[in-house]
């Protein structure tokens, strides 16, 4: 039977996402954020979520809307505060959302470790700072290293440029950012794309995320503009 990971709607793409889950959301600033899928999660009504994303949303749509709705109990990110991150800022100031701040390279490497089956790694990033508090420290070649553990999720929501029915992905410029590494690190990887192409059309030399890391693909609404 032919493999076909294409699903016809956002609702089907996000089906099964439920309260209490940990969700990775791709994007850096406004580039590469899967707004259609985030809206799908909002529409599902799932709550008590843990979100892993570099930022904490800006404007009134997308991740900001999810956080503003009170559905996110905890966010793991590197840089929550940005121009327009008012919905996060207000919840944070009120103590209504937990924040685990992770250096950006440690964030991506922890996800990569999860995707690669690595049980942890030592990095000099953060050594001697508050963000290393409580973590195992080891001297390696005379330098202080911090033990960091893998970061997995139940679901990864990713935006890409194009996919085929197997789920091979290519991205658009810096919209790639965390997409490929999140796709590796979740039990269920759901992707929204601008374009679906026939199998065999994507150049095998330039496929960025091979299909093995992808579970569902849906076509995004290319006309819709989001306030993010």
């Amino acid at each position: 039977m032919p493999i076909d990971k294409i699903v016809p709607s956002v609702a089907e793409a996000v089906s099964g996402i439920s309260s209490g889950m940990t969700i990775m959301i791709s994007g850096f600033g406004f580039a590469g954020v899967p707004n259609d899928l985030i809206q799908g999660v909002l529409d599902l009504g799932a709550t008590d979520l843990t979100v892993i994303s570099n930022n904490a949303g800006t404007g009134t749509d997308g991740l900001a809307a999810l956080i503003g709705s009170g559905r996110v109990r905890r966010i793991i990110c590197s840089y929550p505060r940005s121009k327009g991150s008012d919905l996060f800022d207000a919840r944070y100031a009120a103590g209504e959302i937990e924040l685990e701040l992770v250096p950006q390279g440690t964030l991506s490497e922890r996800m990569r470790a999860a995707g690669a089956g690595i049980g942890g790694f030592f990095t000099p990033t953060g050594a001697g700072t508050e963000l290393a508090a409580g973590k195992e420290i080891r001297m390696i070649d005379g330098r202080e290293y911090v033990l960091e553990t893998p970061l997995r999720a139940d679901v990864a929501l990713v935006q890409a440029q194009a996919a085929d029915r197997w789920g091979n992905l290519v991205y658009a410029k810096a919209g790639r950012n965390f997409g490929p590494v999140m796709a590796m690190a979740a039990d269920l990887t759901v992707v929204q794309v601008r374009e679906i192409v026939p199998l065999g059309l994507l150049d095998p030399e330039v496929i960025v995320t091979p299909s093995i890391f992808v579970d569902r693909v849906t076509l995004m609404d290319n006309e819709r503009e989001w306030d993010i």
């Binding site: 590197s78 992770v102 700072t129």
Partner: peptide
């Protein structure tokens, strides 16, 4: 809110 981004890396 604090924002470490890539600064420590």
């Amino acid at each position: 809110p604090p924002g470490v981004g890539g600064a420590m890396d």
